[in-house]
Design a protein around this nucleic acid. Sequence first.
DNA 1: TGTATTCAGTAGTAT
DNA 2: ACTACTGAATACACA
Length: 706
Amino acid sequence: MEHHFGQGTTPASESFDKTRVLNVKPLRTLVPVFPSPSNPASSSTPQGGAPFVCVSPSGPFPSGVAPFYPFFISSESQRLSEQNAQTPSGQRVPAAPVSTAVPINSFRTPTGAANGDVGSSQKNTRSRGWVTEEDGYSNVEIEEIDADEGTGTGRSKRKSNKKTKARQSGGSVSVDVDPDAVAADILKSLNALVFDVLSQPEGSRDSVAYTLMIYEVMRRKLGQIEDSNRAANSGAKRPDLKAGAIMMNKGIRTNSKKRIGVVPGVEIGDIFFFRFELCLVGLHAPSMAGIDYIGKTSQEEEPLAVSIVSSGGYEDNVEDGDVLIYSGQGGVNRDKGASDQKLERGNLALEKSAHRGNEVRVIRGLRDPQHPTGKIYVYDGLYKIQNSWVEKAKSGFNVFKYNLVRLPGQPQAYMIWKSIQQWTEKSASRAGVILPDLTSGAENIPVCLVNDVDNEKGPAYFTYIPTLKNLRPTAPVESSTGCPCVGGCQPNNFNCPCIQKNGGYLPYSSASLLADLKSVIYECGPSCQCPSNCRNRVSQSGLKFRLEVFRTKNKGWGLRSWDSIRAGTFLCEYAGEVVDSARMEELGGDNEDDYIFDSTRIYQQLEVFPGDTEAPKIPSPLYISAKNEGNVARFMNHCCSPNVLWRPVIRENKNESDLHIAFYAIRHIPPMMELTYDYGAVLPLKVGQRKKKCLCGSVKCRGYFC
DNA sequence: TGTATTCAGTAGTAT
DNA sequence: ACTACTGAATACACA
């Protein structure tokens, strides 16, 4: 594997001159994808007519212009959905996905055909628009999944269960927007994605990833809708639970059969932000309880523990990275107060597992300084219960204790967190640090330069700048003078022009996550009245994560983060020097610049998201050179299965638009995992342009990039 | 089929 | 930081 790596990227050199060390060339050329195959490139302006038709994300779509298959339903179609007065039926059905590069799994046509699907919203209004059994796809796929599991009983059980659940939710009431109808709509808009999940082999890495993506999408969208409803509908809402319940009811999950040991498709070190995520991928079934176990299936058999979550609710001992002293469950009751724990349920299962010696999955829940609200769950692999005992807790009551020891030979997971914590507290120093702050203070947090792989002393010289230089304001898509939201843009303020431009919703959630994947993100800008901490200025406040530029094994320098990064989070923008097309030509020639961001090239829709999402769409060409000046983004390597993507961000500026390129996390990214995005593939190649051998190592590697 | 049980997560209030 | 409070899956008891 490794023997042929590095050929194209590293002209072997042992220069140690710090100012001009080695030109590593992380090979950069970005290419946006355009949905329409008939307009591969676009040189015309938005008003020009052909390639760029200005379409509001919410439609209506001019004839001949395919909608982008929005990641979410638009606000407009949402409101109309009750009357089923949405865009022509063919457009809502993802039968002809934008991307011609259909993901590995073949797209499955709904059994009920397209019409059944579209009509279901009307048919099911009594049941709150729920897409139930009649919606075409659920029957076949779910049966197949059940059949795969080989549990006949499980199937019939689940089916009857599903029906009652659907009916139950049919009785629920809501004030403004019906969340169930919304959920049904979201699911419909995600049809392709749902098919993808359901057609994946149970437990494949993809089925896990897609399941989490759908969950994330559902959760954020439900939260977004909840957000704008808040005025009418007070009280704490739980989009995490809501989204989870919908997925469970629809059977959009993987590894639904409990198992001891490895869960296929879930890797050690994977991180999760909600308990439901653990549930949906089959890692840990209970939505709250900390011990998951297989109950006794017959009189003789004994319950066995399969997984535990250690998240600080009890007095667990987590000092050692490889040993966990876990407390049993029970003994706390809101009404009755504390009591002795009993040897039953999870405690009994752990006890039996200790004797049986079976592997128990351990999920470590921890507080991350980066995400003060909520916890992060780290899958830390398999442990075995060495011994157990009963002891008196602080409360004075008996508590069961289980001593779990991590099986050797597993990749680090929780230990990485511990290490980072130690580097942070300075009780241990980071090995291989070349520069504590590569940015020389240009960013608000330092970005260190590290090499613990070889002797290279740093990348080729460049000047660090945190944002774009020579920014050329471009013509606005719609004329506007910015928003008047003095106190910051509020999610339920439908009069805010910046919110309107985004299709009626703030593009970011309250946690500053990208709410949905639009082709363009409209942020507030210099001409807006809102303050700098406005929720619609996410990409403008600099780095939020402790990033480091590090030496990769075979791809030169790369970028990674000490902090875990949640899917949808803004990472950084692509900084550099904005250059014009003439200069671009020069740079594309002999003076090849591998740090170019070129918005005008064709970006082949790659397997970033399995479903159809809006491809990035840039209103006017943008070329950025980061060779001489740039920021951390210039170090991000290419990967064919990336964890980061980019979107154009337009910042409102006096009837002009400041166009930036912003990067967002596609999925949850554990600390110290390399950050990569898809450079895209240029088809056809320009004259003189070379394909570059791809070293990403992904199983889906295309073999080259451009 | 019903229900007790459970190491969530959020918002609101107090410190 | 603490508190209240709603929340949903599951095992298991029960009919």
